[in-house]
Amino acid sequence: MQMNFTLSGKEIAFDIAHCTVAGWTGRDAHAIQHHIDELAAIGVKPPSSVPLYYRTASGMVTQQDRIEVVGKGTSGEIEPFLIASDGVLYLGLASDHTDRELEAHSVALSKQICEKPVAKEIWRFDEVADHIEQIEMRSWISEQDGDDWVLYQEGTIASIRPLSDLIDGSGLMSSAPAGKASVMLCGTLGAKGGVRPAKRFKMALHDPVLGRTIEHSYAINELPEIA
């Protein structure tokens, strides 16, 4: 799947052949258990091991500002987004939008059923590698149709298992054929007030050292669930 991104003000294209969603990636054991518990509260079974690497279709990655889902039981979550292409690594921003009702039946299927919105801008990973864990992640939700944004998630990449561990554990750098790209969503933060659906989702990845921010927002269009 061909996708274009903006890198240092210029457009760069990738042919994405492989997509992985890393789950249960919290570094703090208590934070992981909190996320497991908040999902258990909506019926999601605990993971067999941590972290886990869920393979999803590359075509599920989207840069659109609106996604369509079935029913009212889905929600987004902010995640670092990695692109590996021809031995070079890039950092971006994504939302692992997930069907929470289906997640109670199968986490793997729930990851596959919803599109994964990603921001159009990316950074070279080697530009942020020396301060990667200082990079800040925030998301907001709007539960109405207005501008009633509520802070939903907040933290730094230091809250997540080291990205180098996830890169090695997933085989990201070697998973795509030559000339093609592999991408990975790298895990999230706990939700303030608990995991819940929203009308819109907004997210930001902020580099306080280089003073730059990647942002993306999208609306969620709920299609009727017909039996």
Rank of each mutant, 00 (worst) to 15 (best):
V69Y: 01
H97W: 03
T62F: 09
Q64V: 02
L91Y: 03
A104S: 12
E77Y: 00
R100P: 00
A104P: 10
D65S: 06
T98V: 15
D99E: 10
R100C: 04
Y90H: 15
E68V: 00
G87L: 02
T62V: 11
D96W: 05
G71L: 01
H97A: 13
T62N: 04
H105D: 12
G73Q: 14
T98P: 13
A104H: 05
E103S: 07
T62K: 00
A94H: 11
E101P: 00
E68Q: 13
L93T: 07
T74P: 08
E101W: 01
A94D: 08
I67G: 00
G92Q: 00
S85Y: 07
F81D: 04
G92S: 03
D86M: 05
G71M: 09
L82R: 06
T98R: 14
E79Y: 04
D99P: 02
G73P: 01
A104L: 07
H97C: 11
E101D: 14
I78Y: 12
V70L: 13
G71N: 11
Y90T: 06
T98E: 04
E77L: 03
D96K: 11
V69S: 00
A84M: 14
L82E: 05
E79T: 07
S95R: 07
P80M: 14
I78L: 02
D99G: 02
L93R: 03
Q63R: 04
E101H: 13
G76E: 00
V70F: 01
D65W: 00
V88P: 00
P80D: 04
P80E: 14
L89K: 06
T98N: 11
L102N: 06
E103I: 04
L91S: 05
V88K: 15
T62W: 05
V88D: 05
G71Q: 01
I83N: 04
L102Y: 06
G76V: 02
E68N: 06
G76A: 14
I78S: 07
G87E: 02
A84E: 11
R66Q: 14
F81Q: 02
G87C: 10
K72C: 08
D65H: 10
V70W: 01
P80N: 06
S75E: 01
E101Q: 11
E68I: 06
S85L: 06
D65A: 12
E77D: 04
A94C: 15
D96E: 11
P80Q: 07
I67E: 07
L89V: 07
V70R: 10
H97I: 10
E77F: 01
D86H: 03
I78T: 12
H97M: 14
P80T: 09
Y90G: 11
S95L: 15
E77R: 12
G71I: 06
K72L: 09
I83G: 01
L82A: 10
T74W: 13
L93E: 11
R66F: 08
E68S: 08
G71R: 07
A94Q: 10
S95M: 12
P80Y: 15
E103T: 03
Q63N: 03
E79G: 08
D65T: 08
Q63M: 09
V70I: 14
H97N: 09
L89Q: 03
R100Q: 03
L91A: 07
E68F: 05
S75G: 02
V88E: 14
T98W: 08
H105P: 00
